[in-house]
Amino acid sequence: MLELRNICKTFNPGTVNEKVALNGLSLRLEEGEFVTVIGGNGAGKSTMLNAVAGTFPLDAGQILIDGVDVTRLPEHRRARYIGRVFQDPMMGTAPTMQIEENLALAARRGKRRTLRPGITKKERAEYAERLKILDLGLEDRMTTKVGLLSGGQRQALTLLMASLVKPKLLLLDEHTAALDPKTAAKVLEATEKIVTRDRLTTLMITHNMKDAITYGDRLIMMKDGQIIFDISGEEKKKLTVEDLLDKFKVAGEDDLSDKMILS
């Protein structure tokens, strides 16, 4: 479904701030795979996701989604294949627009936007139904401006928007990191429900090792812009936080944040 072939990206080349973010990374995701991604700060996790989403051009390598080479497609053209939830709850929704208007925008992802109505009566009923899966009561507040929602509510809504039109690929960039533990658990629960129901091919970055183990059917660990550890199936099910910490030590990763160890 997703194939990354030897992708490279260096930020600020030729300056003192030069940073090799992706160093010949290759990865293959099968259809319906739910992959969690962990790694220290600066390992290249977010850069990899942004490369897939098309936020910046690559220095080298190829990206294929469902066999289509998207390496040179601009971000908005790739959007037809990709659903995204960002780390920052403010980034995924339009605050000055209503909940239903945001959903209507998402329902037209990858389609031509014409002079037809931006939202129809039929859609409203459908969105109210869809919002119920989040279990936040948003279905009763359809015309509320999204800017009035809490970070957790906005993140849950973004998740629903990302999956409203079934994406070939769902990208979650630490989408619960900015939320309090209770809300984070709720959003993760909704994520699991939606990903399982729609059998979405998913890449989820997380700082939380426990979440990385609990969720998904495959786990990859990144360091210095490469994948250093890739585990799936039965092996992943048996994985413990201690195993992961050992792997980090073997990899010489001395950059473990407190958040990763304590959680």
């Binding site: 960002f86 995924g92 939202i119």
Partner: peptide, 22 residues
């Protein structure tokens, strides 16, 4: 209120979101 007009409003409200929605 049209699809096109809504995408204009979205652009002003949130660029990153608008791109992500195609």
């Amino acid at each position: 209120g049209t699809e096109l007009g809504s995408s204009l409003r979205a652009t002003g409200a949130n660029l990153a979101m608008s791109r992500a929605q195609g």
